[in-house]
Write a protein that binds this DNA or RNA. Structure first.
Lengths: 277, 277
DNA sequence: CGCCATGTTGACTGACGTCAAGGAAAGTGG
DNA sequence: CCACTTTCCTTGACGTCAGTCAACATGGCG
């Protein structure tokens, strides 16, 4: 276990998808041979699951070529969303959950007074849209922070399959459970940690989540604005900016606008009160 | 809809239980006549479901006498817990979720440094224990704030039944979804509201939840300490105390130690930024 | 009755918010 | 490609809300 406290990674989400994908194709009788494909960039909206770079995260549990081939027929992929496009909006009817394929999203809700509250950030491999399950309507909006694409999983189909496959149901319960424990860790962060600890925890979270996706844990780009970060962490833009500058002065980070390089990851984790084992 | 923002009530949890209870008994072939029973106090640990005061919350959807009668065989009820007893502890194996029958609980986690963080309060009719689903181990402890009793629902049985009953599965997904949206509303509260707004929101939350249970929305007892409240809301004991005194000076509350009387519920909701419709 | 946990209130402090100014980056139109 | 505007980011000065420390009150429990 890498992270004991602080923001939690969404590692297990993909385990869920093996099951979905496998299940959605298990009734197929066709058995055609497919040859190995060179892995293409997953940002390509037309790339098949079999050729997707994320497939080793997404499909490690026995899923045969035929099943993968069928996959593309079932998971719905639209054209990519541009920066600023909404995946869904608050009070839209809930119809599906989405796996982020490429790019990143933020979810947010707007209060009666018109004040925005950022609820979360979602990176490739993570599931967005669970907020609509309870009431059948989304209670937050999801917006692309950059050019992005998703795999759409219609929720009624998912429920049908879960009836057929106990292990899929079990897995989706766990995914939702994970969202609950993640939120509760976030509650702890907000209710007892300083501005510096919050910013550090968020950076460690991005680092960990990048690492899981086989990307650099120490060098990445923040796709969201300082305002979004502050809003999410319950602090002001100015405090975010000052905190990041402070971390840079301590030689923990090198920052160039949205480009972040973590020089001292151990030190950062110490500040974030995250323990690596 | 009564509450648009702020802490959310757990109203729908009971709707779930009709289904569980109905399902758990639907295979029964016995059909014995039972006579109507006078509703007894639900704090009585040996009282049957048919005689439980909460039954009109718990079982409004067609559940016949026979089914109710069978119910007692399946839902596990232990002896009541005393104040300070643990329902489960952090890192216990997860085996069941619990419906609070009487009394109240708090859940909390302890950080590496030994600092306690209160994660929630649970009143009769609410479900506690969902935090263990994702990892099969509880990541928080649940402790009785007063003499209390619960109905224990073994989770593996619940999963089995959910396979048989699509509507049960659907409902449990919704319950978990509700927990997620509740936590996200709490995140908003912690990240953008003042101490006064937080305390007001918590009091409104208790008021609403009491009202659902057909108890007074304006006069109740806080079973948790000021320290617990402060910890939960991310403020200190002193601030909680000062805030409550301030609300009393404004003639919004009359407070006598743990006994709270809300004089101006509309005013309190205004402070809490909760809109009643 | 006395002890210890819990709650209240006051004085002081400090972390973070607010206000303000200036600069860098990104989008826009010619 | 370059002006132009707009948005975003950074930094400084100052104010304030809530934390800290301390003293005392209250109440539950042995």
């Amino acid at each position: 276990m890498v992270v004991s406290k602080g923001l939690q990674s969404c590692h297990s989400t993909w385990c869920f998808f093996h099951l979905v994908f496998k299940a959605m194709n298990s009734d197929s009788e066709k058995s055609q041979l497919i040859k190995p494909v060179e892995k293409k960039c997953h940002t390509n909206p037309v790339v098949s699951c079999s050729a997707c770079r994320l497939s080793d995260l997404c499909l490690p549990i026995a899923l045969n070529g035929d099943e993968i081939n069928q996959l593309d027929q079932i998971v719905q992929r639209g054209r990519p969303l541009e920066k600023g496009d909404h995946l869904y909006r608050e009070s839209d009817k809930f119809t599906a959950v989405y796996a982020v394929r490429s790019g990143s999203f933020k979810t947010y809700a707007v209060s009666d007074e018109g004040v925005e509250q950022v609820a979360g950030f979602y990176l490739p491999g993570e599931i967005v849209g669970l907020d609509g399950i309870s009431s059948q309507f989304h209670c937050s909006s999801a917006i692309a922070l950059e050019r992005a694409s998703v795999c759409e999983i219609p929720f009624d189909r998912l429920e049908d399959l879960s009836i057929q496959l106990p292990s899929l149901q079990h897995h989706f319960f766990r995914i939702m459970g994970k969202e609950i424990t993640k939120d509760q860790q976030m509650l702890t962060l907000l209710s007892s940690n300083s501005a510096e600890e919050r910013v550090a925890a968020l950076l460690v979270s991005f680092s960990t989540r990048n690492h899981i996706r086989h990307m650099s844990a120490t060098h990445f780009r923040l796709t969201m604005s300082r305002a979004d970060i502050g809003n999410y962490l319950g602090i002001t833009v100015e405090t975010v900016s000052r905190t990041i500058s402070k971390l840079q002065n301590q030689s923990i980070l090198v920052v160039n606008n949205k480009d972040i390089e973590i020089i001292d990851l151990v030190g950062l984790k110490k500040i974030a009160k995250v323990r690596s084992v």
